[in-house]
Computed example of a mutant assay.
Amino acid sequence: MSRIADNPVPIPKGVEVTLSGDNNIEVKGAKGSLTFAFHPLIQVNQEGEILRFSAKNADKRVNALRGTTRALVNNMIQGVSQGFERRLQLVGVGYRAQMQERRLVLNLGYSHPVEFTAPEGLTIEVPSPTEIIIKGYDKQQVGQAAANIRGFRPPEPYKGKGVRYADEIVVRKEAKKK
């Protein structure tokens, strides 16, 4: 039984939530606008500055969808009001990052530089050559961009070199002994 879905979602000031009859919800805020089409068996009720989620029947899978819908809508509201960010670190000799217009240019030990173009709605900052900050209002888009950049050179377990999340712990292996 989903207990997350029982918690109401508060709507902060400056955020406008619009529910349409065809199972769509639109959230507008200072950072941007997001829309989401939820399952027809989920019912969303707006009571003043609070959103509540309920299931139209007592099926176990519908209750799970209710919790998922609540979490996604909560992320939308948090994204358009505060935004999300992911931090990446480059670990390794010669591993560098720099911005050129909207392109992130990475030197990751390959014979060529790797380029990543930031999608619309995302901003990428490089405060130091070994640190990357990805910011945006869509949590899924921020996480996917971070995963794509990390995928160019994931951290390896012997020396720990590669692109890693700032809060990631890389478990190191012991080298082969003679």
Score class of each variant (00 low, 15 high):
residue 1 M to I: 12
residue 4 I to W: 11
residue 4 I to H: 10
residue 5 A to I: 07
residue 6 D to V: 13
residue 6 D to H: 14
residue 8 P to F: 13
residue 9 V to T: 11
residue 11 I to V: 09
residue 12 P to Y: 08
residue 12 P to E: 06
residue 12 P to Q: 00
residue 15 V to E: 02
residue 17 V to F: 01
residue 18 T to M: 11
residue 20 S to D: 14
residue 30 A to W: 10
residue 31 K to M: 11
residue 33 S to Q: 13
residue 33 S to L: 11
residue 34 L to Q: 14
residue 35 T to R: 15
residue 36 F to M: 06
residue 40 P to K: 04
residue 40 P to Y: 06
residue 43 Q to H: 15
residue 46 Q to W: 00
residue 46 Q to P: 04
residue 47 E to Y: 07
residue 50 I to N: 12
residue 51 L to K: 02
residue 52 R to P: 00
residue 53 F to C: 03
residue 58 A to N: 13
residue 59 D to G: 12
residue 62 V to R: 08
residue 64 A to S: 15
residue 66 R to I: 00
residue 66 R to V: 03
residue 67 G to F: 05
residue 68 T to M: 12
residue 68 T to I: 13
residue 69 T to N: 01
residue 69 T to H: 08
residue 72 L to T: 12
residue 76 M to P: 08
residue 76 M to V: 02
residue 78 Q to N: 12
residue 79 G to Y: 02
residue 80 V to G: 00
residue 81 S to V: 01
residue 81 S to H: 02
residue 82 Q to A: 14
residue 82 Q to K: 15
residue 85 E to D: 07
residue 86 R to E: 15
residue 88 L to Q: 01
residue 89 Q to E: 14
residue 89 Q to P: 06
residue 90 L to M: 06
residue 90 L to A: 04
residue 91 V to G: 04
residue 95 Y to N: 03
residue 100 Q to M: 08
residue 101 E to A: 12
residue 102 R to P: 01
residue 103 R to T: 12
residue 104 L to W: 05
residue 109 G to N: 07
residue 109 G to Y: 09
residue 110 Y to M: 09
residue 112 H to S: 13
residue 113 P to V: 05
residue 113 P to N: 05
residue 116 F to R: 01
residue 118 A to R: 02
residue 118 A to P: 07
residue 122 L to F: 07
residue 124 I to C: 01
residue 125 E to L: 08
residue 125 E to H: 07
residue 127 P to K: 00
residue 127 P to G: 07
residue 129 P to F: 04
residue 133 I to E: 00
residue 133 I to V: 14
residue 142 V to H: 07
residue 146 A to G: 06
residue 148 N to V: 14
residue 148 N to R: 13
residue 149 I to T: 06
residue 149 I to V: 10
residue 151 G to Q: 10
residue 155 P to C: 03
residue 157 P to K: 09
residue 157 P to Y: 04
residue 157 P to M: 01
residue 159 K to N: 12
residue 159 K to S: 15
residue 162 G to I: 09
residue 165 Y to S: 04
residue 170 V to F: 06
residue 170 V to H: 10
residue 174 E to I: 11
residue 175 A to I: 15
residue 177 K to E: 14
